[in-house]
Design a protein around this nucleic acid. Sequence first.
DNA 1: CCGCCAATGTAGGCGGCGCCAACAATGCTG
DNA 2: CAGCATTGTTGGCGCCGCCTACATTGGCGG
Lengths: 206, 206
Amino acid sequence: MTDTLTLMHTRNRRYHHGDLRAALLTRAEDTLREKGPTALSLRELARDLGVSHAAPSRHFKDKQALLDALALTGFERLTAVLGASQEGVGEAFAKRLDAMVRAYVGFARDNAELLDLMYSIKHDPGASDALREAEQRWSDLVVRLIGEGQAQGEVRQGPMERVGLPVFAALHGYADLAVTGMLPPEVDEHGLDDVIAFMLRGSAPA
Amino acid sequence: MTDTLTLMHTRNRRYHHGDLRAALLTRAEDTLREKGPTALSLRELARDLGVSHAAPSRHFKDKQALLDALALTGFERLTAVLGASQEGVGEAFAKRLDAMVRAYVGFARDNAELLDLMYSIKHDPGASDALREAEQRWSDLVVRLIGEGQAQGEVRQGPMERVGLPVFAALHGYADLAVTGMLPPEVDEHGLDDVIAFMLRGSAPA
DNA sequence: CCGCCAATGTAGGCGGCGCCAACAATGCTG
DNA sequence: CAGCATTGTTGGCGCCGCCTACATTGGCGG
């Protein structure tokens, strides 16, 4: 057999998988999305990938380490999505806020279980530094947005934690409500418009 | 309410526990608070209560049923706390909102893991009717608050889901941020003031 | 070029888990 | 006070995460 190219994905039961670590993460995210976090088991993951039940331990020291790695990819993708949302939307604070909020809620919808995992892990005091940094990077995007709004006179003055925190709370809360299915579908669509307008009123200059 | 009260709490290793169901719930909430949701195991619960590992199944058909029952008590207590917060605070919307928000966040702080459980369970489509009703009862308190504010002319007009939803999102989001420890302690104290003021601006009449 | 070694995967076992079935003690009720 | 539903016990099944010992592989320095 020609094992020169793309031997990574042949199902030939080679002794070495090729990129088991990445395969585990991908498969774990699929299972997380389809069957929920409690259904995630290292042994089942290993079975799905045609590998022995102890193989994953070569790449993740325990189950939590895999979940941490999964959350890390989530933060990175979220940061990318939020960053992209700011491109080509102009300078007006209202537009920029609108774009970012919709991007965040969109990500939350598309990655509900993953987002849940991301938050539940950050809560843990033993979270890794990389995780903390990734979370810092994306929250910086919100901070910067508010800061720019202040500089333009479109957002009330004041320290960031006083001005930005309520906006962030509403954003986070709405995304969580939408994601956990607490909003009837028809409320959900227009609800976001109302939340954004609410944010603008609440953060407008005095 | 008759006699048997005396026997309920003797540790005499009687064959029948007396009120194993309530004891399981109480103990489960303690371990939930102290060691987190993943550490909750029916067998350990049974051991703690000095009972065999299969005894809990006589009262809860499976682990999820126990978690559901636990969440139900949580919703009932939350409703009671929010209701009590409205007593003796006068009629002004700002005062009533302030009291309810602080009561909610206080409950969230005191019962962080339980609240988490409550939300994660409601998400599940198989949640029981009793659970749905309990959740309905407390969200009605928020709805009524907003409705009264509208009647007094202190809250902008409009359908409830358009006016109340953003307020609720901010409340829920802030409580979650506070509970998961995402807020530095010094931000936390005054942060709530800022969020309440933000809510009032956002929901003030046009 | 090749032998050695670190990296990666396998095989098996340990204790704990949730759940189930069969059996035992209890106490309510007719 | 006898019978029976309720409540608790014992044991077992198949999972799980994690550990240790062993097997295979590929890359690197002599």
